[in-house]
Design a protein around this nucleic acid. Structure first.
Lengths: 136, 136
DNA sequence: TTTTAAATAATAATTATTCTTGCATTATTT
DNA sequence: AAATAATGCAAGAATAATTATTATTTAAAA
């Protein structure tokens, strides 16, 4: 049995071609895709799919913790198949998003801050990426 | 001379009653107000002000670093007069936003991560706040 | 295979934010 | 102080990401 099918079944998610398609696209690691990016990609194999379906699949996967949703770029969400907590960097020049690994960050493994229970955390960095820095 | 006037002048911002009004509302520390919150508050003293004006004043203040814009709640920005870097917590139950102070965070004073230049950073925590935790 | 609950396509609705335009106000220069 | 130039404002239209609605189709259990 295919890996995607196995994982969806393990999470009590009904198998549909559209869901498998979105899953495959997201398996492309280290990418940070918007709903529209995914829509455009999946349209190649499922020309009749609608953007609302993509959104509903993404919401479902997010609820099941199969993906990570980030909002580093204010007006659109990006989706990421790396589900362990990690931070992100957005280059103001080229708009590229990078994964960041901060090892000794006290928040990363904490369960609480100031008495509040942490379910999830996001670290967003903004600036000029190393590539753009070189170009100048 | 009033403090607000002094600060605006120091930043080469033309003084207008609307700008002073927004400034006063934002001086209310430890609040995290949306553009619409500010609009509703300032409408009391300036009934003819428009929401677009509020947005343009907020954009101006942000550019001049007189305020901090956060997007912890995905679909609306909040504005905060504390301009030193600090993190935030959003309670999924009551939707309240709290300021968080993480002292020994390696990112906080860093100029770079992975070779990328950091201009700004935001730490967002999501979960259940101490108040809501107690209530149960 | 039949049944039934859930998923999808298509489209409309929503909502925060930005853009546009004509007018009013303020600053600058004379 | 008057004239001119620059900027700010109100009002409403436009944009764009996301969500809601509904009729139809499909997956999977019986």
């Amino acid at each position: 049995m295919e890996k995607a099918v196995k994982i969806l079944k393990a999470n009590n998610i009904r198998i549909t071609p559209q869901r498998l398609g979105v899953y495959e696209i997201l398996s492309d690691k280290n990418k940070h895709l918007t709903a529209d990016d995914i829509y455009r990609k999946i349209k190649i194999s499922f020309p009749s799919i609608s953007l609302a379906t993509v959104y509903s699949i993404l919401e479902l996967y997010h609820k099941k913790h199969l993906l990570n949703e980030i909002r580093i770029d204010f007006d659109k969400s990006c989706f990421d198949s790396r589900t362990e907590t990690h931070h992100h960097f957005l280059c103001k020049q080229c708009s590229k998003i990078y994964d960041i690994n901060l090892q000794p960050c006290p928040a990363l493994n904490a369960k609480e801050v100031d008495g509040h229970i942490i379910h999830e955390l996001q670290g967003y960095f903004y600036g000029i990426c190393s590539e753009c820095k070189e170009k100048k």
